[in-house]
Every structure is written in structure tokens, then in C-alpha cells.
Amino acid sequence: MITSTAVVTTGANAELSAQAAPIGWASQNGGTQGGGGATPITVTSASALSSAISGTSAAVVRVSGTISCSGMLKVGSNKSILGNAGATIDGCGLTLSGSKNVVIRNLSFRDWDDDAINIEKASTNVVVDHNTFTNGYDGAVDIKRASDYITVSWNRVHGHGKSMLLGHSDDNGSQDTGKLRVTYHHNYFDGSGTRHPRVRFANPVHVFNNYYRDNEYGVASTCNAGVLVENNHFDNVDEPTLVGYAGSPAGTLVQRGNLFTGSGSPEASGSVAKIPYSYSLEPASAVKGSVTAGAGAGKILP
């Protein structure tokens, strides 16, 4: 029986609970606090943001207004990057390379020229929460190269094709096997095309209580990955779940408790490793309402 120490709520309570300890893989391995109690600093330019998020000292960085930039800004360890109301990253993205203990929350990303958020090279304990992504070049949130213990929650992707890649290559199994453990919950894949997520090697990956609307496909498990897909709502999704994809060999996928509205038939095969943390499931019938009301930037207290 599934139990929980962090009950998912809706409305105003969701806004408050979103700032508490993460649910899912980011709660493991010592947990994820970001900059913790460091005194917040506010930045309004790309140069100030880049400086504030560098290094390994604990920092709470508040983004104010629209920051225009290009390329990728490197995020060091022990950082909370938090958007004030209306905060926008325009033209660039954030990259974590071997970084640990990072929270990215309440930001709108648009028109990025590489990835919006790139997590790689054994980055661990990362939370990507309550952000909005639209009209970028490549991935909204890409996780690869042995990164681990990550939660991606309450985000909205719209007006964009490639959403969330987990594992970048069929040839990277020696590095990725046993890593790339990620929880995706309460995300709103709002007319986005593919990769929600597309998974290689990781087991178990946990995908629960997300709302999918008008997508080409939902979740793809490939390259011996193991993905648990439960209590999501797939609304007009051509291929809700896939076992193997685009020439990549099959993984395993367990789907249960999901709601399929005007969607194709889900694929499932095999078993998945046990989820090690406590969590609470909403019924799939409630997911559309809670996720459309609560996902994305601006849906939590600044």
C-alpha cells in the first residue's frame, strides 16, 4: 500500500506546500535544500545572475524582471534560483554540470537557444519546480550523463516540441545505468510535442499525476529503463506510453490508474524497480483540475 508523508494538495495550499521539502527522488540521498537559509540577493541582469549562481557557496538568488541573454549560464552547487512575480529568462538557459543541491523555481523560460535547463555530468539532488517553458530551440529540461536524485514538478510546457529528455544517447549505458533516477509529478504538458519524458537506462523513473494535452506521445521507456506511470491524465495523446522508440531498444513500463481521454492505446511491458519514498496519489480524474490550476510559474507565492 502506498503511504505518504507529503500529501499533494490543490489551490492555495498547493502554493504553500510547493515550497516545502520535495516529493520524490530529490528527497533521497540527504534531500535537496538549495541555498537553504542564505540571505537572498536579487538580480536583474544576465551578468549579475551568472555571477550569483556560480561557485559552491550557499546562495538564494531571486530573479526580478526579464533577463535577456544567450547560450547557457552555469549553475554551481548549493543554489536556490527563485523567480519573483513575472520573472523571465529570455534567450538562454541554465546548465548544471556536476552540481549538487540546486532548486530552480518560479521562472518563465522563453526562446532559449540551446536547452532551457540542462542537468548533466553527475549532478545530484536537483528540484525543478513551478516553471514555465515556451518556444525554445531544444529541450525544456534535459537530464543526462549519470545525473541522479532529481524531482521535476508542477511545471508547464507549451508552444514547444521537445520537452524532457532523460538520458541522451543509446551508447551511454556504462555511465547512466543505475543513475538518472527522476520523479516527474504534476507537470502540465500543454500541447507540447514529445519527450514527457523519453527515458534511457534509468530504473525506476516515476511519472505520476501529470496532465497531458494534445501531445504526439507521452512517456517512452527505452534502453532497459524502467518507468512507473501512474494516475496521469492523457487527453488527446496519440501514443500515451511507448516501450521502445525511434530505433532505441525497449525498456520496461508499468502503467496503472491512468485516465485516457480521446487517446491511443498505451503500451506496457515488464516490471519496474520499487519506489523507495513515500508519496500520495490523486485520482487521475482530479489531475486535470489540480494541474491546470497549479502548474507553471506564478502559481506559488513569490
Rank of each mutant, 00 (worst) to 15 (best):
V7D: 07
V8I: 11
A12K: 12
N13A: 14
L16K: 15
L16A: 15
P22T: 12
A26D: 06
S27W: 00
N29Q: 12
G31F: 07
G35P: 06
G37A: 15
T42N: 10
S45R: 02
A46Q: 14
S47L: 11
S50F: 00
G55F: 05
S57N: 11
R62L: 10
S68P: 01
T88F: 01
T95S: 15
G98D: 01
G98K: 15
L107A: 09
S108E: 15
D113R: 06
D113W: 08
D115V: 02
N118G: 13
N118M: 09
I119G: 08
I119Q: 07
H130T: 11
G139L: 01
V141N: 01
R145M: 14
I150P: 12
R156D: 11
V157A: 11
V157T: 13
K162P: 01
M164A: 12
G167V: 07
D170E: 11
D170P: 08
K179L: 08
V182N: 00
T183F: 00
N187D: 12
R200F: 08
A202W: 02
P204T: 10
N209H: 03
N210G: 08
G218C: 06
A220R: 02
A225E: 01
G226M: 04
E230G: 08
N231C: 08
G244T: 04
Y245I: 03
L253G: 04
V254S: 07
S263Q: 05
A268P: 05
S269I: 02
I275A: 08
S280E: 05
G289I: 02
V291W: 00
A297M: 01
L301Q: 11
